[in-house]
Design a protein around this nucleic acid. Structure first.
Lengths: 221, 221
DNA sequence: TATTGATATTGACAGTGTCAACTTAGCGCA
DNA sequence: TGCGCTAAGTTGACACTGTCAATATCAATA
């Protein structure tokens, strides 16, 4: 008997990869931090401290998979929030509220999705233009794109129906509009997470005002 | 002779606290990551691996001091960018551009300023409203507030002169406007850092369009 | 039935954050 | 002047980490 304790657990787990992701996700959620050890994740999954290396080449990889799961959940939540909503303006407000609430409810997970744990360790030299592709795992990138697509669709629909002052055929106009909204929503989420708003308003109210400001503008008409 | 090597370095460093912050800042900047060890910071400063504990009770504390330094630099940079600019609209564009550029030039530092390394390890239960104060070090919080104040001033000036459609006497209107702008700028900075914009435009152009969208609104007039 | 390949295990290693105990040296006070 | 206090440095130890290498298990397949 070489195994430490001989509970009649099979030698091979069967679905360890998924189990590890779930354990790590639970840890992130509970501790609101991802500085837990890979060994603890393994312990939770009931395997030896080195078993994870059969499924993830690094701790970073596991965290990347967790981030991807987070993006998928976010995407689903936004889709659910806008399902059946016809008016693009209303859909935008609902989608944005869903987004921000998801982030605020699990700040550590939200941070992990965009987090520095996934950044390339190598120093990235940057020119004055913003080029695509960074060092984050492909899995997380793809899942993130899926979430962003929900937003893009709303904008496109709004442009098509003339609800937004954007040409539905101009890719760049659409992109700028989406970027503006995504920036605002992403930023607000993080400021809320950091408790940096100084506002006592409920989150939904805040999101409402933010998006309305974006739609209507700050300058006098 | 108990000391490892007897170069004639004095037993007491003299200004170790500052030296440690500088070393850590340099490491963050070089490696674009703050997973370096506290011991390496000590090595850089030329002291033993435990010397830092006389000035910082945890590694987190040191990183907090670095974050505070980052906020001060950001504040100075914004102030320089808007110095002598009379028109609030122009000032807003200039200040925002300075902000985003600062973030993009040293992404790891920017992340650290708002980063999860400073978050409370304890699980934070959150109600539906956004309350102030989080677990980040007072030093970093104060420095962050100093940077935000620059933005607030611009908004206030704009409101006073009627450049923005905001009542200069309504605290809540001012706060919402500032929050909207800060969210957008913060969000854009992070999306750029993550190379998530998919845009090939120069940063200054991007900032310009973002702020103009915010000022003019997305809806048809 | 023997082989193989994927999946798991144990053991080892250097390096980490932090605690405890000790040393140094500058400053205020007898 | 000298003495001791205290802040600021030191070494040493500890449990624990991520990751590597070697080994064990077992299902599938030839």
């Amino acid at each position: 008997m070489t195994r430490a304790e001989s509970i009649d657990r099979p030698y091979h787990h069967g679905d360890l990869r998924r189990a590890l992701i779930e354990a790590a996700l639970a840890l992130v959620t509970e501790e609101q931090d991802w500085s837990f050890s890979l060994r603890e994740v393994a312990r939770r999954a009931g395997v030896s401290h080195n078993a994870p290396y059969n499924h993830f080449s690094e701790k970073r990889d596991l965290l990347g998979a967790v981030a991807a799961a987070g993006f998928e959940a976010l995407r689903d939540r936004m889709r659910a929030a806008i399902a059946g909503v016809g008016n693009p303006r209303t859909a935008l407000l609902a989608g944005a509220a869903a987004y921000v609430n998801a982030g605020v409810e699990n700040p550590a997970l939200y941070r992990l999705m965009f987090g520095p744990a996934l950044a390339t360790p190598a120093p990235v030299v940057r020119s004055g233009t913003a080029s695509a592709d960074s060092g984050r795992p492909a899995e997380a990138r793809a899942a993130g794109a899926g979430a962003k697509a929900v937003l893009d669709e709303i904008i496109l629909r709004g442009a098509e129906r003339g609800v937004f002052a954007i040409s539905a055929t101009s890719k760049s106009e659409l992109a700028i509009a989406a970027l503006s909204i995504w920036s605002a929503v992403h930023g607000l989420t993080l400021l809320l997470i950091d408790s940096l708003t100084g506002s006592e308003l409920a989150i939904d109210t805040l999101v409402n005002r933010l998006i309305r400001t974006l739609l209507e503008g700050l300058e006098p008409r």
